[in-house]
Write a protein that binds this DNA or RNA. Structure first.
Lengths: 358, 358
DNA sequence: TAAATAAATGTGTACGCACACAACTGTCTA
DNA sequence: TAGACAGTTGTGTGCGTACACATTTATTTA
């Protein structure tokens, strides 16, 4: 049997397609009696709209805004940007236009300024990485009032019911790191947790990662058997950065693992390379080129990754599904939490592949 | 500027849309002069067909056949099946119908029988897991003659240029296992490689996995420093199966890791549980419920997985893109080679599956 | 009760493409 | 020179939906 069309419903309800259309879109001007009858038939016949026809017929141009960090400042943002651009390219057919608003990920003021620009542009939908909690809240309220749906990624802020959140689970990724370390050394390990280049007070995700790591050991009843040394480092003064590392590693020769909570694992790897340190294993985040270099060299053991490219891609697609195709979309979309090593790396960096997730 | 339509090209070339259509689809009956002129304009204007309109206009029903293993016989096949069904559901709109042909993955005759049924059904496209090399070749030839495109997944057979291959890289997955083992024990490890329930001569992928493991150590110049004990086991006689395991583990107390090349890691885990063996770490394949059970219990350390659900899903979608949307598709589509552990498991499985019991 | 108004319903067209069919061109033959 | 014919080219319709607009029906007002 063929697909049910509006026409079929109209026929069965002995009304015109226009009336069915009004019911489907809640445009009013339909008597309650007819309305209910039609709704019942829609239910019965299991009508599903044809998205192709729907998209074809509408000439509306959708304007989306994407508010993300500057890849020039932090290479991490290259991937979300690429994903957003790919989604934008694919969606041009449906009259979707995506404008990028790039802020400095280390500067809350820059974020606010760009968020204001987004608001001024009055887009039909917004995708953003709400990195600065305090600063973003007022914008959520404005967008709510203006009924502009927004999708979050990278950082979760559930309190202001966004249209959707594209998952990135910092806490759980810390647990994964714990598992890897534990697997790598069943004996009580000694771990350096390095927060590099980000203010910990400002970035909840760093703390969450550390918490995840700690809780891995706690939950596995290993809490008395490990040592975690915590360091906040900053490369702005490189000499001092190296000096700090010297102090840490010379003072703690027992350290076996280094868990870097930002995308700066390559800095530790570089340091190890220069100092000929080979016995400490590094676990870090994000498949940025510098990290991949040291992953391939064997200085970094694992990179943990939650598909930032896919986050951008699916973020835009959530908006498209909602606004263009008027589909129901899920409030949270989690992407796989990948453990990437030299050996499976190839399957994570081929760009085309990153979208092949369900 | 809006998207370029056939009409725009026709206008510019001072011909009708029909002529442009004939050129686009190589239907002939166009003078060479006009043909070239139109082709040039198409190039210049950067025409991209509107897939929605294209799919909407055609009322053709596409009949696809999917030839896969029986999930009842080997639970592994549940995932590809689910993926195929999901793709089929999504594509019903475009007039795509997918029929499943289920064979016994341990029985070549059953495969042949079902492949014959597929041929008899004369589908527009075929997705299959060509498990039995020798048996599948004649069918490739038949389908080639009948010009039925086929997409392979699960097992790669490049020689007969399928429309596309959905990647699954057994060799590389063995390398990943090697990496994990090496990370878990930097000292020369002692490893049991267990091939369970499949005839090794019949299934190239088992050998490839083992090769990958061995080559990891070889490539890292560790080849003299490890020990690999190989075992082919079969559960058909369960008492004997246990007896064999007894012999292996009692005779080789030095074994620290067990690498199971099939989806039967849970059998080893069950054995360890019964025998209170806790010091040997298991690495296996596939997120089937039995494996997940022991992964969560901590008896299995890692499961390696190349998204079988996605393989089914993207396999069908390759056929759809090719036949329905007439897009160019890639000859090989690789899916990420995932390392799954208790800690990131949630992000790899459908939630509903979490509640599955043994 | 006719006219005015509001509410409910029906009709027609565009979206971009594919394809069937109609119409035109020029050449060759009887 | 009309007719046949192959080689070209043009036209029209349907796909399912959204939406503007036209039409009908019911209700109120003068």
């Amino acid at each position: 049997m063929k697909n049910i069309r509006i026409k079929d419903i109209a026929l069965k309800a002995k009304v015109s397609t226009g009336t069915v259309d009004r019911v489907l879109h809640d445009r009013g001007n339909v008597s309650e009696k007819v309305r209910e009858k039609i709704l019942k038939i829609i239910e019965e016949m299991n009508y599903e709209p044809n998205f192709m026809a729907r998209a074809l017929g509408t000439k509306k141009v959708y304007h989306f805004a994407a508010l993300i960090g500057d890849p020039g400042v932090d290479g991490y943002w290259n991937d979300p940007k690429t994903g957003i651009e790919k989604a934008a390219r694919e969606a041009r057919q449906y009259g979707v236009e995506v404008s990028l608003f790039i802020f400095n990920p280390y500067d809350a003021d820059s974020f606010v300024k760009k968020a204001e620009e987004v608001t001024a542009a009055n887009p039909d939908g917004i995708l953003l990485a709400p990195m600065f909690y305090r600063e973003v809240i007022p914008f959520f309220q404005i967008w709510k009032e203006q009924e502009i749906p927004f999708v979050l990624f990278n950082t979760q802020i559930p309190e202001f019911d966004p249209l959707s959140y594209i998952g990135q689970d910092s806490y759980q990724s810390g647990m994964v790191a714990g598992k890897l370390i534990h697997f790598g050394n069943p004996q009580p390990p000694s771990i350096l947790v390095a927060h590099i280049d980000e203010e910990i007070s400002n970035s909840a995700h760093l703390t969450k990662k550390e918490q995840g790591l700690r809780n891995y050991f706690a939950q596995n009843n290993l809490n008395h058997h490990y040592e975690i040394i915590k360091a906040e480092l900053n490369r702005s003064n490189y000499a001092k950065f190296v000096e700090q590392l010297d102090t840490i590693f010379e003072g703690n020769p027992q350290i076996q693992f280094c868990f870097v909570t930002t995308s700066k694992a390559h800095e530790i790897a570089k340091y190890f390379e220069q100092k000929f340190i080979t016995h400490i294993k590094i676990i870090g985040y994000d498949l940025i080129p510098q990290n991949l270099y040291y992953l391939n060299k064997g200085l970094i053991s694992f990179l943990i990754n939650q598909n930032p490219l896919g986050q951008g891609y699916w973020g835009i697609n959530q908006l498209i599904d909602h606004l263009v195709f008027k589909k129901e979309i899920s409030a949270v979309k989690f992407l796989p939490l990948d453990i990437v090593t030299k050996e499976n790396l190839n399957y994570y960096i081929d760009e085309s592949m990153l979208y092949n997730r369900l």
